[in-house]
Design a protein around this nucleic acid. Structure first.
Lengths: 217, 217
DNA sequence: ACCTGAACACCGTTCAAGT
DNA sequence: ACCTGAACACCGTTCAAGT
């Protein structure tokens, strides 16, 4: 009844993997589960997307492609940069197990998807009078600020259920996790963390602006 | 010949795991290899350090504990903050597979080790007249800047050998990795990335300084 | 009480047959 | 050519015996 393995293309595989990621978390994404969802054996995946590592890279790429919002006519570069950054943050935070996905890559191509996603911002900055390398560097700072926030930012108290792939064991780290009794001042709510993120972005934008004005002959 | 399993404590286990991490990479760190290196079965590890996830957390904690440099008498807070940030970056960059280690945690405690490591900086800022939450927030920004840089920063061209745990397969991602022919302007050398990282830190410090001066009654 | 050996239910990846 | 089934060499974690 129609569908044979030969119809498969890489995009479908990535799609299937993202569905599993969303519904069951990263631990549930395996070459077997993904191929199973597509009704094939794991082998064809190696022809279409390469290694599992490559699959993870493609998933991240897909997640970040198209995050850049459209520029508005007459919009100041600062405003667009802010919107771009918020959009990137939103895409990252809405992805289950995103932190682990970003960290998972074995090689050094972890930033490739971010570079792709930032192309419109680079273009926007250049249109605003930035030199190419100036625009690229400014974009990098914003990426770093965003990724750092996501990787080590406030915990998401709204993400229910542990959902740890293999058999729930309620075990808790013993011994070494000495938590301050007096209440740790470094614990931020999601709202506070978001506000602080915007502060970070503003500081970076201020710095970029000053350097731009001072550095352009 | 003394050594029985009962001598084991959590620190030794973390040490052994870190040796394997350094020498063979994160893929080689398993409950079996770590326990094997210690001459025990995997079971005792679960009593001492908990899950593999807990072990990874403890490894990161260890790696970051003691990164904070000592404060110098009469040192301006900006100077100390800069040194602290560079020390953190150094610790992160010198750790094999660090990106994957940071990303590996399943729960939301990924930032705990960073909070621990930043305690001296928070203290330093408070001694310089910052309110506690002001100091904590400033520290967070610096952590985000550093972690973002590490997670998605320039590739390390100096880290030789792929060393991908299970049987070298030289396979290359096929198809989807369309690399710009014209030379990607977003490709930075290590030196450039380091310089840009310092720029980022300076921007953040500038912002913190201005907010501090403007916000203190 | 706390160990070990064996087991369970998985992995990523490859290979020999099949069509 | 390109698939499938089976296999290889692992995983994390748990459990029944042992001492």
């Amino acid at each position: 009844m129609g569908r044979t393995a030969i119809d498969l293309d890489a995009d479908e595989i990535v799609d299937a993997a993202l569905v599993i990621l969303r519904e069951q978390g990263l631990d549930a994404v395996s070459m077997r589960t993904v191929s199973g969802a597509l009704g094939v054996s794991p082998v064809p995946l190696y022809r279409r997307v390469g290694t599992k590592d490559d699959l993870l890279a493609a998933m991240l790429q897909r997640l970040l492609s198209g995050v850049a919002p459209r520029r508005r006519t007459g919009e100041a570069w600062q405003a667009y940069a802010r919107r771009w950054t918020v959009a990137l943050l939103g895409a990252l935070e809405s992805t289950r197990d995103l932190r682990r996905l970003v960290g998972a890559r074995q090689d050094d191509t972890a930033r490739e998807p971010f570079v792709e996603a930032s192309r419109p911002l680079v273009d926007g900055l250049r249109d605003a009078g930035f030199a190419t390398d100036e625009a690229v560097q400014a974009t990098r700072l914003l990426i770093w600020a965003t990724v750092g926030h996501v990787m080590v930012g406030a915990g998401r108290t709204d993400t229910a259920a542990p959902a740890n792939g293999r058999g729930a064991n309620g075990r808790v780290a013993n011994g070494r996790a000495r938590r301050r009794p007096g209440g740790d001042p470094a614990r931020l709510s999601r709202r506070e963390a978001d506000a602080l993120f915007r502060v970070h972005v503003d500081y970076v934008l201020d710095g970029i602006e000053r350097a731009h004005e001072g550095g352009t002959p």
